[in-house]
Nucleic acid binder design. Structure first.
Lengths: 175, 175
DNA sequence: CGATTTTTTGAATCATATCAACGTACGTGG
DNA sequence: CCACGTACGTTGATATGATTCAAAAAATCG
């Protein structure tokens, strides 16, 4: 769906090295990236300096601080690369962007609603389930990602320490 | 903004008693309600039978399982009243509803994005902050609600037990 | 008022964090 | 290709925060 849009315009294709930072907090407007190849993540750094991963974006995904975009507030997120990646920087990323890319606004709305659904699910999981169940949910929801993402980042996504996830894994092994 | 829409149509105005359930899981499509007066909440019941409150809706808010709506999947949420309330049942709640009520789709999009922002914030808080800080965040974000909502429901919103919240409060008192 | 629900308190237990040490894998320069 | 250094992952000991369970006190409702 997005490919068409990108091909017919002069969008910037970037070759990104692993660990390269594509966006830092404070930028306004925030950037958005379409991942052609590789793997990006977005994360937030809290007051104690700890990182919390909000999403992973493998091939075919768009990643951005959509909140910052559409509300024109300074971004609070980092975006960087977990693998060497090929990404397209979306130049004009606002509401009109979607109306061009999507067949209609309704498709954008559906996308946003899906994002709400994912976040809502995650809130309930964080509130109701111990780390082990959250990890199992992650495994079944993103099976294709679990091999590509280092343990400590999965832990950061789940909201636990790397040590805790390591323990969970070892318990799961011995069962 | 919504009032205009409701007044010029034959929408159903409901008088709701405290504790009355407006929506249960399984309903498809899910309903949506505009709160004229009173206080509603939406919540999910997990596999262990525990409730987790997703949002409170005081006067002027719309509450619904928007995910269920727009994706036409069965609802997983309950909606009920925490106070005697006066609500308007939105009959035709889909994308076209918003295009009539809102000046443009962009306003709907902005609403959805705000919802994403709130949920994203909540995910990070759940992952990074101990219960006390989450409670303080709740207090400062919804000062007008804290007196109206019983402790045990605030606990359910924060993802902790009522006992834990009671302890936090007593510690805060003695400081 | 009495009955029911909510809030508080305390004790025992559990899950996860923290800290420290060690083992392993990986990439780079020699 | 090897040796080294750096990152990452694992493991164990201890500390902390929250849960669970039980019971009493306080608030609310009919």
């Amino acid at each position: 769906m997005f490919e068409n849009y990108f091909n017919k315009r002069e969008n910037e294709i970037l070759q990104i090295k692993k660990n390269q930072v594509l966006q830092e907090p404070g930028r306004n407007p925030a950037r958005a990236f379409y991942v052609k190849k590789g793997l990006l993540r977005s994360y937030k750094v809290d007051d104690n300096g700890k990182s919390h991963i909000l999403m992973f974006a493998p091939e075919g995904w768009i990643i951005s601080d959509i909140e910052s975009h559409i509300l024109s507030t300074p971004s609070e997120l980092y975006i960087d690369a977990l693998e060497d990646s090929e990404v397209i920087k979306i130049k004009k990323f606002d509401v009109t962007f979607f109306t061009q890319v999507e067949k209609s606004n309704n498709q954008l709305i559906e996308k946003l609603v899906r994002r709400i659904a994912v976040l809502q699910k995650r809130v309930v999981l964080l509130m109701s389930s111990p780390a082990k169940q959250r990890y199992e949910h992650f495994l079944s929801t993103y099976p294709q990602l679990t091999n590509r993402i280092p343990l400590k980042m999965i832990a950061s996504y789940l909201g636990i320490t790397p040590e805790a996830l390591s323990n969970i894994r070892s318990k799961m092994r011995s069962q």
